[in-house]
Nucleic acid binder design. Structure first.
Lengths: 164, 164
DNA sequence: GATGAAAGGACTAAACC
DNA sequence: GGTTTAGTCCTTTCATC
């Protein structure tokens, strides 16, 4: 449900912001940044975790640096759901797998070493159904921070044709 | 360059693994897990950060819980590069923006509150060029862990037609 | 790289407002 | 909900092996 999130106040929003910026910040330092005492922020972070707003904390690694020279987005056509999921599970090169509406049922983000490796991974999915591969040239925005949704942030679309 | 990463040994690989699992683990605990002393892991983590293998640490938030009821992937056709980048910069709903090869120059991952909000965001890009929107139904794999690339992990493709 | 010691900072739990 | 305090644990920086 796309409800508002009235249970989150400005402190929570700032805490979520800071933890998305640097997840390894100490609770004492976080407290200083949001102007709360250390036990207070610690308790709020615990509640945000318990309520499922925060799912975890992850180190962000550099694919290129780790030897993955190519990132690609692979569109995969209609195929039996369970078969695709199983193949994804057997393919560690898939870093994100979206099941989506539309002609292409899946969009997979993969990280591979080189073209030979790309071939090996894409071929596995080609055996199921049609695929279409796009190589990532660059990523001007990656894993942007997300704040609690506020409906007033929606900028209404100006439609040329209005009713009545 | 898609080089190997010989400068990373098994300890570094385990450290990267653990920090991708839980970025807020203490250095003492991390040391216990990878069987190194605490000063030793601390130094290794510092080096991994300095060398750019680790780009940072982020809290992973739940879009749904934060009020974003819809995630979508928007394919955006050919358009002037700078104009697209500028529009992305002005659109906080874009959480990932991939500039890719192929007919669609961009694939954007967006998080929006509801259909009205989706309309507002997609329309901004429609004004530049053609777009195609696919709603995310589910995400069986999200931000999977990545380990240092090893060429021997590539499973060679069995081609039906072989040369000579 | 391990170990050990010492100082500073961070975390937890309790009492209290 | 918030703060403060006290005790414990963690981290950092030495030194030494």
């Amino acid at each position: 449900m796309a409800t508002e999130v009235p249970e989150l106040d400005a402190y929570d929003a700032r805490i979520l912001d800071e933890l998305q910026r640097d997840a390894r910040i100490s609770m004492a330092e976080l407290g200083r940044k949001v102007h709360l005492s250390q036990p207070a922020v610690t308790e709020r972070v615990r509640k945000l975790e318990m309520a499922g707003y925060i799912k975890g904390y992850r180190a962000v690694v550099d694919y290129q640096r780790l030897g993955y020279g190519i990132r690609a987005l692979v569109r995969v056509g209609r195929a039996e759901y369970a078969r695709v999921v199983k193949l994804i599970e057997q393919t560690p090169e898939v870093v994100n797998a979206f099941n989506v509406t539309g002609e292409d049922s899946w969009i997979l983000e993969i990280a591979v070493i080189d073209v030979e490796h790309l071939d090996a991974v894409v071929t596995k999915f080609c055996l199921l159904t049609e695929t279409s591969t796009a190589i990532v040239l660059n990523v001007p925005r990656e894993n942007a921070k997300v704040l609690p949704a506020k409906r007033e942030d929606i900028k209404p679309v100006l439609k040329k044709v209005t009713g009545r």
